[in-house]
Design a protein around this nucleic acid. Structure first.
Lengths: 222, 222
DNA sequence: AATAACTTGCACATCGCTGTGCAAGTTATG
DNA sequence: CATAACTTGCACAGCGATGTGCAAGTTATT
C-alpha cells in the first residue's frame, strides 16, 4: 500500500513531510546516488515506513526529484538572453551555480537514475537554448570555430558539471564558485582567461550578488 | 575458500583467465561501478564461482584493478616533460586519452570504490607532476594567473576527466579524442582556442599517431 | 472532543548479491 | 597417461535493501 489519501486535501504536516523527504533525498543522492530509503527517511526525521505513505516506490521518489529539479533548473535558465553569446554563456554558468544542488543531482540521475531513458526529454529545452546560443556565438566569431556547435555545447555542459563538482568538493565560497563556473564555461567556449575575465568584469549582470548564491547550502565561506 | 594454488607456479590457462577477469571487470566497471561478479564473470567467459579461485573477495578484485590501472597511468605519464608547460599539459592530455579506459575506471573507483581512502596515495605522483608543471607555467606566464596552482591543477584534472567521458559517450574517433582532450586541458589552463590550436600544430610530438591511440578499445572511427 | 489523516514499529515475503563447501567435471603439464 | 591444477554447478547461509500488512500510536482539523 502506498499513498493513503483518497483524493482529499492532504494535511498540512503531511505535505511538510513530503517536502522534507524530497529535500533529504536530494542531499543524500548528491553524495551517493544509491542512498537507501532508510537513510533518506532518517535525514528527513521520519521512519522508513512513512516514505511509503508518500511515494509508492523508490523510483517514484527519484522521479519526483528529477522532474522537480528539472523544473527549477529550467526556470532558472528560462529568461537568459543576451546579444553577446559570451555573456549569455557566462550567465548560464552563473545560474547553474545558483542551482548547484539540483543540477548535480540531476546530472547523477541522468546517467545512473532509473529513468535516464526518458530524462533527456526534461533537459531538452535547456540544451536547446544552450545550443542556440553556441550556434549564434560561432557564427558571430565570438566562440571557437574549430568544432560543430553540438559538440561544443556538450563540452560546455560537461565542463560546467565538472567544475560544479570541483567547487563543491573544494568547498568554495559562493563568490568563488560563481566566478569559477563562469570562467570554466567561457574557457571551454574558446576564450582565453584574459578574454573571459574581461567579459565578466565588463558586464554588471555577471557580478556576484547574494541572489546568485546557491540556495539551501550554508557552506562555509572561504 | 579462495585462491586454490598452494604457492606453486600457476597453470598457463589459469593466468589467462585471471587476466580475462581483470579485463572484463575493467570494462564493465566503466559502465557501472557496481557491476556484479556474475556479469564480470560472464564477460570473461567464466562462471561466477571461478572468480573466487582468483580473488578472495570482490574488493580484492577491485583493488587489483586500481593498482594495475594506477601503474599503467603512472607509467604513461612518467616520462613527460617539456620546457613549455603548455606542451607538457597537452602531452598529459594526449597520454590520458591513450589510457582512457584505465583512467576512467580509476576516476570512478577513486570516488566510489571501496578503497577510495588509500587511493589518493596511488595518484599522488601523477598529481604532483601536474602541479609542478602548472606552477612553472604560471610563473612563466604561460598559463592563467588568476588562481593558485593547486586549484588550477584540480580543474585541469576535472576537465580532462569530463572530456574523456564526453569523448567516450560521443564515440569519437581516436584522432578526435586525442585532439579534444588536449584542447580541453589547454583551454582550462587559460589558453584561447587559437592559442591552444597553435600550440598543438606547432609541436610534432602532439600530433596524433597510432601509438597514441587508446589500447583495448576497438571503437568505430567516426 | 471526535474524526479522519498521518506516522510508527514490527513482522514478513522477496530479491539480488556475496561468499563458501563439495563433488564431479575438464584440461594443462610432466 | 596420470596427476595435480583448475573450472563448474548446485546448494546454502548471510546480508542489506525494497515493499506490504496491520495494529497501535500521534496529531491536524472541524
Amino acid at each position: 500500500m502506498h499513498t493513503l489519501n483518497p483524493t482529499k486535501p492532504p494535511r498540512r504536516d503531511a505535505t511538510e513531510n513530503r517536502l522534507a523527504i524530497l529535500d533529504s533525498a536530494r542531499v543524500l543522492l548528491n553524495r551517493d546516488p544509491e542512498a537507501s530509503l532508510e537513510a533518506i527517511a532518517a535525514g528527513a526525521g521520519l521512519s522508513r515506513r512513512s516514505i511509503y505513505g508518500h511515494f509508492a516506490t523508490r523510483d517514484e521518489l527519484i522521479g519526483e526529484i528529477q522532474t522537480l529539479g528539472g523544473r527549477r533548473v529550467t526556470a532558472a535558465l528560462a529568461h537568459i538572453d543576451h546579444a553577446d553569446s559570451r555573456v549569455a554563456i557566462a550567465l548560464i554558468g552563473a545560474r547553474l551555480w545558483s542551482e548547484v544542488e539540483n543540477v548535480r543531482v540531476m546530472a547523477q540521475l541522468a546517467v545512473r537514475g532509473p529513468q535516464r531513458a526518458v530524462f533527456a526529454e526534461t533537459l531538452r529545452p535547456v540544451r536547446a537554448k544552450l545550443l542556440d546560443i553556441v550556434r549564434r556565438g560561432i557564427a558571430a566569431h565570438e566562440l571557437r570555430g574549430d568544432m560543430d556547435a553540438l559538440t561544443l555545447a556538450n563540452l560546455i555542459e560537461g565542463a560546467a558539471l565538472s567544475v560544479l563538482d570541483e567547487a563543491i568538493r573544494a568547498n568554495l565560497s559562493n563568490a568563488d564558485g560563481h566566478r569559477l563556473v563562469m570562467l570554466a564555461t567561457l574557457s571551454t567556449a574558446g576564450l582565453s582567461w584574459h578574454e573571459a575575465s574581461a567579459v565578466i568584469t565588463q558586464h554588471p549582470e555577471l557580478q556576484f550578488s547574494a541572489s546568485s548564491a546557491p540556495a539551501g547550502t550554508e557552506s562555509s565561506e572561504s
